[in-house]
Design a protein around this nucleic acid. Structure first.
Lengths: 383, 383
DNA sequence: CCTCTTTGTGGGAACGGTCCCACATCACAT
DNA sequence: ATGTGATGTGGGACCGTTCCCACAAAGAGG
């Protein structure tokens, strides 16, 4: 009796002296039961510590109230990822509020295995996080299961995806630095295959181009010589001396987007960086920015006095750094919450959900850029 | 047909022209089927994109191959927690390898709700992370479900728990700083209710006491006056001038263990800190250490030239900081992996599992303490 | 007093698998 | 020919719910 893991509705009904139909009505709250019967059943449930079997329920309801979350990564662990971790946290909370539970999986090889697993588990819907290969999308489409992509890179008009407006964010970053008077920019760009990185970069470059167009006289670094095409800059690290622009921009591409890559890149190109007398460094995410900035600091470069540094993502880490990193925020909370909310509507059969939601980003000015930035941080991280 | 979410074994069998028993045998791999029948069934499965229904399977098997992971937190999100996030990552990977899936829940109020949910889902076992109240343990004990505690604070001999050996880690930290010649210590201690924080602190203090006993002459700061009790130091921030010890220790207690608390604490006690001419700061976790260090840096204190700073947890963040933080590692990978492995054994009915596993910690010497420390970092954090 | 609702309860099929057991078939030894 | 054993397949109970429907009892209206 004590060794039993759990009791069934039949046993409960037996103890209460009613049929299992009646017990079911009391437990599930669907259907009528007279007060005294209800009480007897409830008492028996208490006694047996009866817990309805969600598995059996799911079976007849053909619905599990579970949502599968798959995070696609290549090699690195990803829940503890500074941005995706936050999104997962939000998903967890939002799901709880809507009565869903979360099945979490990370997928190293971007394979279809984890997808199969979720399908076999008969989750009600899927949230796919991060860039995923086309084959994954093609695959999931074949099954009639609601799914949503968060921060994905596919530009498929069919799939519902939630992304931050990285292009606009890149523009704001450019504006911020430009307004602070910077004209010589060194950009550390994460892998261009990533939607986020490439959009942030292009937003930044485009904005810079249009800013220069407006007031092309106020500069001391103008290498007036170009012809005026609107391919603003060199794609990979040649000076933009041929453009009819005032800004000097060097784009350094990083093969991946980690802190270490930022370090490595700056170590390799430090000489070039110094000799170019850049006054601002923009990286397409915080990790790259911090990695690069660390190398600068170690070489005795003062941030922001000598060089301003700006990242993107508003990871907690950036706010904690010394100097605190100026960055562009990504609305992780919004992404996570809405992912669940919209998926819920899709599960409910609603057809008319938005295909694409973009989240606006704003500049979080802090110490690492010269200007009025403050040193506060959005503190997280306890034990 | 295309609108169908999924097909049943019966439909599959029908298409293949066999009975569902036979189809089951082919699909599950349990039992014999002749080659041509096998092939027919497999072909039909392909055609229908048949996915076995794990819910139905779980029902008859009375086993779900799901593991519930509940992270108890008070207010802050916790998956993105620098340490617990890592542990969850490891659990995810280990579970995958053993054929389990993970149900993840965080529990804000340390309530029993999430526990009930897991029980209803009929998970095969539970991993409970972080400190949990006694009522939670009492509750889970009532059900015959295997469970394990990771980094929990309960010292209940019945429950299987995996913890890092925080006491020994604290000792090593003391040793490290002592060996580097430090004698005036300022300690930022996280909440003493937390097992980890209090053990790290006591380990540190005890070790310091015994180090001083051994060679009480080699010092310039000796306030020879005390009587020789072995209550080494003042508990809260009074100088240990009465002890027959060479070290001066101040313990500053922080109400919580976040980065912000570290900042706040050091801001409040900065004057005291400066006037005490401490040469080393030890905090019971990295976040507190970094928060405090940031304040020092902002006040122009040089780390490690003026003050050495040391944390605990070996969070990625510490390695990325400038200067890179010396810390004590916690074997998050080991904790996560073993949690799943041991739980698996318990699920398998094995009685004879260890009740307590302690993970040794080692000092990770980096730049923030004077000495030979290097500046490397275990880089993580990409997009 | 008999029908006709109304009301509360129970019986039982269904969900989609697994697995035990029965059974048909066939080879082979008797 | 007949029994025997192996071999491959099918029938059907069962897991723990939900929910439809049948049904008994009771109350209302003629």
């Amino acid at each position: 009796m004590d060794t039993k893991l759990s009791y069934s509705l039949r046993e409960l009904a037996q103890l209460a002296g009613v049929s299992k139909s009646t017990a079911s009505r009391v437990i599930s709250g669907n259907g009528y039961a007279s007060p005294d019967v209800r009480e007897r059943v409830l008492k028996a449930a208490e006694e047996l510590r009866y817990k309805p079997n969600a598995v059996a329920r799911a079976m007849v309801a053909k619905r599990t109230y579970n949502i599968g979350v798959i995070v696609f990564r290549d090699k690195l662990p990803i829940v503890s990822h500074t941005l995706y971790g936050k999104i997962v946290d939000e998903i967890l909370m939002a799901a709880e509020d809507l009565g869903y539970s979360i099945f979490l999986k990370t997928d190293r090889e971007m394979s279809l295995r984890s997808m199969d697993y979720m399908l076999e588990q008969r989750v009600d819907g899927l949230i796919l996080i991060s860039r995923l290969r086309k084959n994954v999308i093609d695959y999931v489409k074949k099954f009639n299961i609601p799914y949503i992509m968060v921060n994905g890179s596919a530009e498929d008009p069919d799939v519902v995806h939630l992304v931050s407006n990285d292009e606009a964010g890149g523009e704001r970053a450019a504006e911020h630095l430009y307004d602070q008077g910077h004209r010589r920019f060194f950009i550390v760009a994460g892998p261009v295959e990533h939607r986020s990185h490439s959009l942030r970069l292009s937003g930044f470059l485009n904005k810079l181009g249009s800013l220069d167009d407006g007031k092309r006289m106020i500069t001391e670094e103008d290498k007036q010589s170009g012809q005026g095409s609107d391919g603003i800059v060199d794609e990979t690290s040649t000076k933009a001396e041929d453009a009819s622009r005032i800004s000097i921009v060097t784009v350094a591409e990083s093969p991946d987007s980690s802190f270490d890559s930022g370090v490595r890149l700056m170590e390799e190109r430090y000489e070039e960086f110094r000799s170019g007398s850049y006054t601002a460094l923009f990286a397409t995410n915080d990790m790259l920015a911090l990695g690069a900035m660390k190398v600068l600091l170690e070489n005795g470069v003062h941030v922001p006095e000598d060089v301003s540094v700006m990242g993107y993502d508003n990871t907690d880490l950036g706010g904690m750094y010394h100097p605190a990193l100026t960055t562009v925020s990504v609305d992780a909370a919004g992404l996570g919450r809405d992912a669940v909310a919209i998926l819920d509507r899709m599960i409910g059969g609603e057809e008319n959900v938005p295909r694409l939601i973009e989240y606006e980003s704003e500049v979080i000015a802090r110490r690492s850029t010269r200007g009025e930035g403050n040193g506060t941080c959005s503190g997280i991280g306890n034990t």
